[in-house]
């Protein structure tokens, strides 16, 4: 996962092109589709600020996830202050629809999980960070991160299975 270590620091634009889509999926999964644009923008602006100081051997993806995680936590806190319940955001605008599993439907379903499951599923399954890296981002042990990810997937499976929307069943 290390970013071409030893070849010197990449232009920041390369980082945006390479990781922009994944960070957007993570933001959609963590704060929901509506607030994801703000989370993405704040993540990359903060990353641009800190980029010259980044260790050249650092795992850029894990670094971006850490920044996105903090931005998302801030956004969720701000939303709580505005007194909009998380459940309401996550369920908006529509429940899962019939037919092939849409990417946004799936991300909405992830956004509907409890906080730690949502983070563990997003960082481990969407980004592909190992459980110990996930634990470093969200706190707690690697085993706890693994459990949160597997509980989250079980909950997703129950939810998606229950609504009859899965690629498996439409084949």
């Amino acid at each position: 996962m290390t970013e071409r270590a030893g070849l010197g620091i990449q232009p920041f634009e390369v980082i945006v092109q390479r990781h922009g889509p994944t960070v957007l999926r993570v933001c959609r999964a963590i704060v929901g589709v509506d607030d994801a644009d703000d989370a993405w923008s704040e993540t990359f602006l903060a990353a641009l600020r800190g980029y010259p100081e980044l260790d050249r051997d650092a795992n850029v993806e894990a670094w971006l996830v850490t920044i996105a995680h903090r931005r998302c936590v801030d956004l969720i806190r701000a939303r709580v202050r505005r007194a909009v319940p998380m459940d309401e955001i996550a369920d908006r605008p529509a429940p899962l629809q019939n037919g092939p599993l849409g990417d946004l439907d799936l991300l909405r379903a992830v956004a509907g999980l409890p906080e730690r499951q949502r983070q563990a599923v997003a960082y481990h399954h969407l980004v592909g960070l190992p459980h110990d890296e996930v634990a470093r981002v969200i706190g707690g042990t690697s085993a706890a991160a693994r459990k949160a990810a597997s509980d989250g997937v079980r909950a997703l499976r129950a939810r998606l299975g229950a609504t009859g929307t899965s690629r498996g069943e439409t084949r």
Binding site: D103, V110, V121, V153, R157, S166, R167, G168
Partner: peptide, 19 residues
């Protein structure tokens, strides 16, 4: 619940929709 569904879910999480 079956393994195929589980694999699909994993794929869907990892890989954005090909739509």
């Amino acid at each position: 619940m079956n393994d195929a569904l589980d694999d699909d879910l994993m794929d869907a999480l990892r890989i954005p929709s090909a739509d």
